[in-house]
């Protein structure tokens, strides 16, 4: 046939069609990564051109060492940011996934009135900009704001949310009388890891950080709801009817039919939540820029701060690459789990 001739004509066209994309993605995604890798090995203040020599000095792995192994302020700050973000992950991932699944199940009820209105309601926060909803939350969670007025109705005196650096673990233990946050045990304060005492590591997210976790859960649960909803509607009805004939109750149906069918999507949502939660930036910028007491500082924001506020671009780039490694490790771990449990679902990539 004349196929080879056709193919010959398609070659240049193919490249012509992809060339704008290759150009933009190459120049603004691939090239930057290579450049930043080089900058992360420099001591550079952002003034001169780092690629022609000039004032930038090649310092090898010093930026990475300063963050990970050498005792100093930088390492303590970086460890603090890792702690903050780790607690964020620990709370945000299960909360948003669980809430997303719950909302999807509610909206998927066949006999429920106003389902599409509910779906719209739950999803709407997800389409608005983080900056705009952060502004709303700053207002709602002021010391004398709407949330605290609401709490005072039931006799609770709310904290000064965004200005409260206390870790919630010690606050809770202190209120229960199990520990005294003001006089922690010597072992916890004297020993530590990466320049941060165990007392600090174990403090849990600060009240301010917890408020940000609430905001993130509120804005993300709608997206996860839609993903779960699509999967719920793909469960064959015959499967549920067969189970109903066997006389199962609601809880058994959920446990033995619905949840197993949702497993691949559950893993997908968990990955999305995990990757997203290591990238918290917009919220931090609006809601405190690390304050109070560096308890809302995340690695992503610290990377920005090092470069654009403290003019230490080498350190900023190094943090970005450590963050990249963390995200890759999380994705890798998740993909490995997915492959273990669903051998046939493995993606060809």
């Amino acid at each position: 046939m004349h196929k080879p001739a056709l193919r010959g004509r398609q070659g240049p066209w193919g490249w012509l069609f992809v060339s704008p994309s290759v150009l933009v993605l190459g120049l603004f995604l691939a090239l930057p990564i290579v450049m930043a890798l080089w900058v992360s090995l420099l001591d550079w203040n952002g003034q001169s051109n780092p690629f022609t020599g000039g004032q930038a000095t090649f310092v090898g792995l010093d930026n990475y060492r300063g963050l990970l192994t050498e005792d100093g302020l930088d390492r303590t700050l970086f460890a603090t940011s890792l702690r903050n973000n780790a607690y964020y992950v620990l709370l945000f991932v299960p909360l948003s996934t669980g809430l997303g699944l719950t909302l999807a199940m509610i909206v998927n009820q066949r006999m429920l009135r106003g389902r599409s209105l509910l779906r719209t309601t739950f999803y709407f926060p997800s389409v608005t900009s983080t900056i705009a909803v952060s502004t709303i939350f700053l207002f709602l969670f002021q010391g004398s704001g709407a949330v605290n007025s609401l709490l005072s109705w039931i006799g609770v005196k709310g904290p000064n949310w965004f200005a409260d650096p206390r870790g919630i673990v010690w606050v809770t233990l202190g209120n229960l009388g199990l520990a005294d946050p003001n006089h922690p045990s010597g072992f916890l304060t004297d020993h530590g890891f990466m320049g941060l005492s165990w007392f600090e590591w174990l403090s849990g997210p600060s009240v301010a950080m917890s408020t940000m976790i609430l905001l993130a859960t509120w804005t993300t649960s709608g997206t996860f709801m839609l993903i779960f909803l699509a999967a719920l509607q793909d469960i064959p009805r015959e499967l549920e009817e067969a189970a109903a004939l066997d006389g199962v109750n609601r809880r058994q149906l959920l446990r033995h039919v619905t949840l197993p069918a949702l497993r691949p999507v559950l893993f997908l949502v968990l990955t999305l939540a995990l990757i997203g939660s290591w990238q918290v930036f917009d919220m931090v910028y609006v809601m405190g820029q690390g304050a109070p007491g560096n308890t809302t500082l995340t690695p992503a924001f610290m990377s920005y701060q090092s470069a654009f506020k403290n003019a230490d671009y080498g350190q900023g780039a190094a943090i970005a690459f450590i963050l990249f490694a963390i995200v890759l490790a999380c994705t890798g771990a998740q993909r490995w789990l997915l492959r273990e449990r669903n051998p046939r679902q493995g993606r060809r990539r």
Partner: peptide, 19 residues
């Protein structure tokens, strides 16, 4: 490229744009 998290590119993008 799709697997690269956005916040990792903050400084890199600035570098390319200023270059």
């Amino acid at each position: 490229v799709m697997a690269v998290p956005g916040v990792v590119l903050l400084i890199p993008k600035f570098l390319v744009l200023s270059t």
